[in-house]
């Protein structure tokens, strides 16, 4: 088959250019400048650029010369044009417009969380152990200060905790309770992946008349440990980073921001689900100990009161858009769930 293209020829290793005609006839390739043949070669001595809509065809010759077609629509039958046909096909473009959002949603909101939840079960215990110890060490060096509560009071709380663990058949070794003062965390409690549980002076003081509420909060925290929540969060954030980097590596900043936002919203929803899961764990264990689940509701109520007096900030009034940015479910919703469970 014979093909003829008008274009510009750039001489090897220099910017010298000439207006030429490229003639391809079977395996023979000739370049004509002002009707004079300036090069004769064959198709084995050149590489033709992949066809892209709106991009002029480029032919690179083995000696370093280059031909660029004048008309951006001109093509040689030497190069495959399959991808270009997809990119120009209305059918494919429309299908992509529908499929891309669906697949992104499916990947980020369905597939990855499922994979992540499954995969953390295969992580060896040593990882959680190491992660917990290192985090605890870092926290002790930074935001945790020695407790100012009387030693006898602290021992009483720890004793009560250990008795509860014994009754539930949980390991005293694993779920060690520590009491620290922390201005940064204020009234708070948390559990690390290795089972270490920390409660702050401020929370103990505000719940000192209600040991069952303290127990409810601690059980909620070890619910996170038992369900491997921190490992899931870490795995989720890693997988989101990878998805964005791998698939959207060339999306440019603003589009990356959008994908990032979707991932963050999903992650917060994920986090709200995990809080509910830990709540349910606490309800179950409270009942096992013969304590009504309303103890959890009381603990939550005291959080509400604390927040009201501390910052004048109505924490329950997460209205409108802000709700989707929250990592925890609404406190009143959690209180209602506890009361519901108690019935």
């Amino acid at each position: 088959m014979k093909q003829q293209l008008a274009g510009t020829y750039y001489f090897p290793k220099s910017s010298r250019a000439a207006s030429v005609e490229l003639l391809v006839n079977g395996e023979m390739v000739n370049l004509y400048q002002d009707k004079k043949c300036i090069m004769a070669t064959n198709t084995a001595q050149l590489s033709v650029s992949s066809a892209i809509p709106g991009v002029a065809l480029e032919v690179d010759f083995a000696d370093g010369g280059k031909f660029v077609a004048t008309n951006s629509g001109d093509r040689l039958s030497l190069a495959s044009g399959k991808l270009e046909r997809l990119e120009k096909s209305v059918k494919w473009v429309l299908a992509s417009v529908l499929l891309v959002p669906l697949l992104i949603w499916f990947g980020v909101a369905v597939l990855m969380p499922k994979l992540v939840t499954e995969s953390v079960n295969y992580l060896p215990d040593e990882v959680a152990q190491e992660m917990g110890e290192q985090t605890f060490y870092a926290l002790k060096k930074s935001i945790l200060d020695p407790s100012e509560i009387a030693k006898s009071d602290r021992e009483q709380v720890i004793n009560q905790w250990q008795q509860a663990l014994d009754k539930l058949g949980l390991s005293r070794e694993k779920f060690q309770l520590h009491i620290y003062k922390s201005d940064f965390l204020a009234a708070n409690a948390f559990a690390l992946p290795n089972g270490t549980v920390v409660i702050t002076d401020q929370l103990l003081i505000s719940l000192q008349d209600n040991p069952d509420a303290i127990l409810a909060i601690l059980l909620h925290e070890i619910g996170h440990v038992q369900r491997k929540h921190s490992m899931r969060i870490v795995a989720q954030s890693i997988s989101n980073t990878i998805i964005v980097a791998v698939i959207f590596g060339d999306l440019e900043t603003v589009a990356e921001l959008l994908v990032g936002t979707t991932a963050a919203l999903v992650q917060n929803a994920f986090s709200r689900d995990m809080e509910r899961e830990a709540d349910t764990y606490a309800f179950e264990k409270l009942v096992e100990l013969g304590i009504p689940a309303t103890a959890f509701a009381e603990a939550m109520q005291s959080f509400l009161d604390l927040n009201h007096s501390a910052a004048d900030l109505p924490a329950t009034q997460r209205k409108g858009l802000l709700r989707y940015l929250a990592t925890h479910p609404d406190i009143e919703e959690r209180i209602a769930r506890a009361n519901q469970y108690a019935k």
Partner: peptide, 26 residues
Amino acid sequence: FFGIWIVNVLLSIVTLGIYSAWATVR
């Protein structure tokens, strides 16, 4: 460019990111 972009994003997703190198070049 819309056609090039959207088809390339689709191909990148279904190839689990491998095609993204081709998408970048295109």
